[in-house]
Each structure stands twice: as C-alpha cells, then as structure tokens.
Simulated assay, not measured.
Amino acid sequence: MKEKASKNKYKKRSQIYSVWLRFRRNKMAVAGLILLCILLILAVCAPFIADYEQVIKQDLTQRFIKPGAEHWFGTDAYGRDMFARVVWGARYSLSIGIGAILISLTIGSVIGSIAGFYGGKIDSVIMRIIDVIMAIPGTLMAITIVAALGAGTTKLLIAMSISQIPTFSRVVRSIIMGIREEEYVEAARSYGSRDRRLIMKQIWPNSLGPLIVQASLSMAQAVLTISSLSFIGLGIPAPTPEWGTILSENKTNMRLYPYLCTIPGIAILLSVIAMNLIGDGLRDALDPKLKN
C-alpha cells in the first residue's frame, strides 16, 4: 500500500512538473506570471507600502503635483497621493476579481457536474435556465444586479460571481459529458462507488486543466468589468481607491493632467495582459497534444 501511494504521489508530481516545464518554455506566459506576481505582492503588501491615510486624506495645497521624487505618481485634484491610491486599488480590483472567479467556479462546477453527469431531464432543465441567463451579456447582467442591490464591494462581488456562473457551468458540463463514459469511470462504478465520489475523485481531477485555463481568462475579464462598473458609478464608490473609480474621479482633468488617468489605466492594462498571457500559456501547457 505504501509503495502504491508513493508511486501515485510521484506520478502526480511528475505530471505537475511536466506541465511546469511546458509552461516555462512560453516566455510570454512566464513574463505574464512574473507581472501578475508583482501586482499581487503590491496588493497584499499595500498596508506596508503606503499608509491608507495617504489614500483618503485630502490636502488642497498639494493638488495636481506632477510625478516626481516626492510623489512618484503625482497627486490628484484633492491632493491625494496617486501612488498610494493605485497600490491600494490593486488590492480592491484583484481581490474582487479573484474572489468572484473562485465563487463562480465553485458554484458553476457543481451545477455543470450535475447536468453533465446525470443528463436527461435534469440536464435539459438546467441547461435551458443557463441558456436564458447566457442570453444576457455578462457585463449587462452585472450592471443589472448592481443596480438592483446598490453599489458596494460585497454587492459588486455578488454581481460578478453570478454573471460568471453560466460560463463555468457550460464548460464543466461539456468536460464531464466527455469523461463520464471513460473506462476508469465505468470501472469505479462497477466497484460500487457512489455518484458523489465518482464526480469528486474520478471526474473533477481530470477536468482541472480546461477549468484552470477558463478561470485565468475569466479573471482578466472580471477585472476589466469591475473597473468598468466603477468607472460608470455602479461599482465601488469613491473615495475607495479602486482602479475604475480612480479613472472616473480624474476623467475631467485628463486633458491637463494626463497622468491621472494614464497610470491607473496602465495598471488595468498590465493586469489584464498578465492574466491573458498566463491563460494562453496554461492552455498550451495543459494540452495533451503538445506533450510530445
């Protein structure tokens, strides 16, 4: 038993290592991973990098100072330090984006697993409901939910999670419908495994690859949507330093002081590019056709 467990553990490690080797060959994907890690470090260490007092404290004597040694990213119309606001903005934008994708991935996986594994009437009913929801664009659905619930961090997280659930449900359903007839699933069923154990032990581990790729790509879209909602006043309200909120606050001064919108815009751009590069790299690394 110990030898079998050690072999399985070694096999699992070798598979992860082979995926990492293929991912590492993609220089753009590695660059995206490094960039995302830098952004995540800034988000996690925001309290140690910049005091939150600098984010919300207004000092009209310091307004519209251009980027320099004292204020790396300059100051805005209220004299607030833009560097501190952008760093703390990473904390809000990335945390809500990642949290929304994790919630929607969990709920979508359960719904898709039930539909794909059992099929028949259950699948038909669930998929027709999903089709109705997917007929509404994700951004429009998020706007509708936020408009109904009101602005706020928690409400925005709920809206983003709900808007992404149908996508993951569809992906999981399609994967499970292709896996449920495999020989190892039939063998596990013949040994008397229950449906829940079959799904969790046999089917889900073999569907992680496409799900990870979909999650990384959806995360980029989620960050972009969060910033868009905040920009139009339906996301995180001011003075909370979310990237879209920073853009919205400074849009009237963009012509005279372009750095006020350029810097948070670049932050959004870099985060979306990094996540898309990672998603493309994972898609290539996890594709069985590219193993050889």
Rank of each mutant, 00 (worst) to 15 (best):
I111P: 01
L140F: 13
I199V: 14
R170T: 06
A215G: 08
I179Q: 05
I130P: 01
I122R: 03
I114G: 00
A142C: 09
L149K: 04
T153Q: 10
M200V: 11
I165S: 05
I96D: 03
L105H: 06
Q164H: 09
G120D: 12
V213P: 00
S113R: 00
T139I: 15
Q164M: 12
I98H: 06
I145Y: 10
T154H: 08
V110M: 03
V132H: 04
V132L: 14
T167F: 12
T139V: 14
K201V: 12
A115K: 02
M141D: 09
L156G: 09
Y118G: 02
A135V: 05
I111T: 05
I122G: 09
D131L: 01
L157C: 07
S169L: 04
R189K: 12
M134W: 02
R196V: 05
T167H: 09
I114S: 00
I158V: 13
G112S: 05
T154W: 10
S95A: 13
A159T: 06
I98N: 07
V125E: 01
A159I: 04
Y191L: 13
T106W: 11
S174T: 10
E182L: 07
G120A: 13
M219F: 15
L140M: 12
G178K: 09
P166N: 06
S216E: 15
Q202I: 01
L157A: 10
I130A: 07
I133G: 03
D123T: 07
S216F: 14
S124Y: 06
G119I: 05
A147N: 11
I212W: 15
I103M: 10
Q221A: 15
A115V: 09
A147Q: 08
I114C: 00
M127Y: 03
V110E: 01
A147F: 11
S207E: 07
A148H: 05
S190P: 00
I133F: 14
S190Y: 02
L140D: 06
S218M: 15
Q202T: 04
I129A: 11
N206M: 12
S169T: 15
Q221N: 15
P137Q: 00
A148C: 09
I107N: 01
R173M: 08
N206W: 11
M141Q: 11
K155Q: 13
I136M: 14
L157Q: 06
S93Q: 08
L211E: 09
K121V: 15
L211W: 14
R91N: 12
P210W: 14
K121M: 11
A135L: 08
R173A: 04
R91I: 10
D123I: 06
G97F: 13
A188I: 02
R173Q: 13
Q164I: 09
I122C: 04
E182F: 04
W204P: 02
T139D: 02
I162W: 08
L140S: 07
I203S: 03
L140Y: 07
R173H: 06
I101E: 04
G116C: 00
A215K: 03
S207K: 00
E186Q: 08
T167K: 06
I103T: 10
I111A: 05
S218Y: 13
Q164W: 12
M141N: 07
P166Y: 11
L102D: 08
Y118C: 02
V171P: 06
I212S: 14
